[in-house]
Amino acid sequence: MSVLAATALDDVGSAAQRPRRSLNGWSIALFIYATAFYLFLYGPIAIIVLLSFNNSEVTGLPFRGATTHWYEVVFARPDLMSALFNSIALGFISAAIATAMAFFLGLSFRRDYVGQQLVLGLVLLPIILPGILGGIVLLIFFGYLGIRPGLYTTVLVAHVNWVLPFAFLTLNGRLQGLDRAVEEAAMDLGARTHQVMLRVVLPIIRPALVATLLFSFSLSFDEFIRTLFVMGYDRTVPVVLWSAIVDRLAPELPAMAVITILISTAGSLCGFAFAARASKRQA
C-alpha cells in the first residue's frame, strides 16, 4: 500500500520537529511499543536476508556460516530466472497500461458528468474486494469468455485490474491540482488542444506519471492471489516462491526472496522520490 506508506512517512517527518519530552512512564511504554512494532515489521525481513546467506541445506536457524551459494543456485535455475523475467516484464506492461488508464480517467474527472461517482466506485472496487474473491471472479469471467489462461492475456488483465485503483489515486491528485488557467494560458498563446497536452500538461505532471509507473510496477510485481487463479504455464516470482515452499524444501528460497524485495522496494523508493519532486513542483 504505497499510498498509505507515503502519508505515514510524512507523519514521521513532522514528529521529528516536535520538542522532546522528558522520560516518564508513558514515554517508556511508547518506546517499548515502537521498538516492538519495528521489530515485528522488519525483523522477519532481516532474518530472511540473514538466512539467504546461511550455509545450510535447511532453511532456518542456526546460522552455519556465510555463503553466496544460494544466490548462485537462483541465478543458475532457468525456471527461477524465467519467473523473474516474467514478473518484471508483466510489471512494466501492466504499470504502463494502468498509468495510461489512470491518466485518462483523471482527465475525465476534471469535468463533472453523470455517473461519475459510479465510475469512481468501480475503479476503486478492487481495493476493497478480497484478493481471493477477485481471483475467483476473474477465473469465472475468463472461463465464460473461453479465454485460455496466459501471462499476457489473463494475468495481465488481472494485474491491471488490481493496480489501476492505486495508479488512479496516485495520479488523480496531481491532475486535479493542475491549474486550469495554465492550460487556458497555453491555449490563449496559440496552442491547439494536442499542443496544450504535449507542451504543458504532460511535462508538468511528468514526475507524478513516473511515480505512478513505479508504484504500479511494485504492486504488480508482488501480486500473488489473483495471479494464482488465472495463471497459465508461465509463472511469476511470487507463484514460484509459493510452489517452492509447498512442494519441497527450498534452501534457495531466502535468496530469491531477497532479490524480490530488492526489486520491489527499489521501484517504490524511486516512486517516492518522484512523488516528492512532483509535490515540490506543485508548491
Binding site: 488557467a181 494560458a185 497555453a186 498563446l189 491547439r192 504543458v200
Partner: peptide
C-alpha cells in the same frame, strides 16, 4: 482562444511552472 488576435494576462498569472 488560439485563433483570436487577443492575449490574456490571467488573474493568477498562470505562468508555466516547468
Amino acid at each position: 482562444p488560439y485563433g483570436r488576435p487577443t492575449n490574456m494576462i490571467f488573474q493568477q498569472l498562470a505562468l508555466f511552472p516547468h
